[in-house]
Amino acid sequence: MPLVEAAILINTKPEVVRQFFLNYHNHQHWNPFIISINKWTNKESKELNIDDELQIDLRLKGTDNISTFYPRVLENNESEIQWIGCLINSWIFYGLHTFKFEIVDDDKTLFSQVEIFGGLLSYFFYLFGLYNKTRQSFIEMNEALKDQIENKLAE
């Protein structure tokens, strides 16, 4: 199964990073990869709750195409947010995406993204160069997140 991951150290506590990240309506203003997150179900609650379905628009680095998918939230706690998206059925294609907020040295955060792809179509992931584009998109997003948070703290 293809796996893509990227991490970055952010100079503030995990709760600050998590709070900024969970302001999902703001992603369109800073996030070059996940350009839009909207709740598809349970719209009356602003929180991302387990089993909420989302509408996510993303743009891979180096492309102009916007892809939309509808993952379901599996986990949302202090240390991670996780969702899974499927194409028709998980045996055809799925992506399990995890965002982690880990404390380092009492006042820093190791923010990481991990995505595991599975299903029959996941093997085309490598053939079409999507592995590298996805990893570069993760890195670009992580750097933008770090810049946004650290610049706000410096103000």
Rank of each mutant, 00 (worst) to 15 (best):
F33M: 02
T12G: 07
L3W: 02
T63Y: 04
S79W: 12
S45E: 15
A7Y: 05
I88W: 06
F125N: 03
N23W: 12
I149P: 00
Q19V: 03
N132M: 10
Q55G: 14
L120M: 13
R135L: 11
L9A: 05
N42P: 02
V114N: 11
K146A: 08
F125Y: 07
P14L: 00
K13D: 00
L58K: 08
D57I: 09
L3Y: 04
L145H: 12
M1G: 05
L60H: 12
Y131E: 01
E44H: 15
K152V: 13
I84P: 01
N76M: 02
F20W: 09
V16M: 02
E78I: 03
E155D: 11
T134H: 10
Q55F: 08
S90K: 14
Y131H: 06
W91S: 14
T98D: 09
F21A: 00
E80D: 04
Q28H: 10
E102D: 13
V17H: 04
V73W: 07
T41Y: 11
W83E: 09
K133C: 00
F117I: 02
K43A: 11
E150S: 04
L130M: 12
E102T: 13
E53W: 01
G85I: 01
F93V: 05
K133L: 11
L87G: 10
T109W: 02
G85F: 04
L48E: 08
N76P: 09
W91L: 14
D105L: 14
N26T: 07
